[in-house]
Amino acid sequence: MSEPLLEVRNLRVSFRTRTGTVTAVDGISFTVDPGEVVGLVGESGSGKSVSMLTVLRLIDNPNCVIEGEVLFKGNDLLTMSDADLRSIRGREIAMIFQDPMTALTPVYTAGWHISEQIRAHEKVSKKAANDRAIQLLTSVGIPNAESRVNSYPHEFSGGMRQRVVIAMALSCNPSLLIADEPTTALDVTIQAQILELLRDLQSEFGASIVLITHDMGVVSQMANRVMVMYGGRLVEAGSRLDVMREPAHPYTWGLMGSIPPTDGTRAVRLAAIPGAPISPSDSDRDRCLFAPRCTFATDSCRPQPGLIEHRPGHSDACIIPFSERAQRRTEALAPMRART
């Protein structure tokens, strides 16, 4: 086995606020292999963005406490010097966000953005950088790139802006791309274009991708491996097929049961998860955080169950004996009666 590209060890991120400590990420560990696409799913507030922003040390908040290790090609990003970090960020690891405007400055052209990105990491002439920008814009599917390179962000549609940001991210041929909900703000036909683009670029350039999304469908279309977060913790991780076919954690069952079927059948009711997500300021954390919403919760859900690999490459954090999971899952999905 090759060495992982990224290895996160026991990452913990909390914020000190006026009303107490908010635990955003609560001891997560995972790896990303070269060329792999990892999907990170979970509900709003589950810690998806904070965990990946921490990887790049992009959280600039004096009240933020970070513990753990983030090894990129063996070096800890959390402890390395700012200069070393700068040479990795943007060059070896690039990030794209939900709102492309967070990465674009309204007063500069698309070409300027991409050229600057290139010139920050490589000694090339303005002319050469501009030529590369045109090439990149073409490769992300922007028609008439020679003239569009001089357009300003507001002159592009939302989908086109996201393409410009992807071109920026790819400008230095990164080995890891972190994409935080890159298509959430887009219409579904435009989302399909961007996902196809990411797939093509991934197979062409071979970069690893961590794709953050709340959409199980998007994950299932893109990822080799899936990680499910709840309340700042990983509750399940495994290959796409294992997690989609035989989800192991009750939270994942609920997540799948909440999605209207897309196979053409219709359900009368969805197997919704009762209650509301755990509040990040909830200090009672030495337990399964999903227990208050879980039909199968017992006293044994305290203390916090660890992430256990029940089958090779497929792990979850739940106390239900693994042999009983299939039965429980059927029960959990029972409210989802088919329409007759």
Binding site: S157, G159, M160, D187, V188, T189, I190, Q191, A192, Q193, L195, E196, D215, M216, G217, V218, S220, Q221, L241, M244, R245, M256, I259, T262, D263
Partner: peptide, 26 residues
């Protein structure tokens, strides 16, 4: 047809469906 094809369905199969990816913007 294109709108439906663009829905990211949860694939539990290994085979990939045909996707109709619309070109152009709205």
């Amino acid at each position: 047809e294109a709108l439906l094809s663009a829905i990211p369905v949860i694939d539990t199969d290994t085979e990939v469906r045909e996707r109709i990816v619309l070109t152009g913007d709205l």
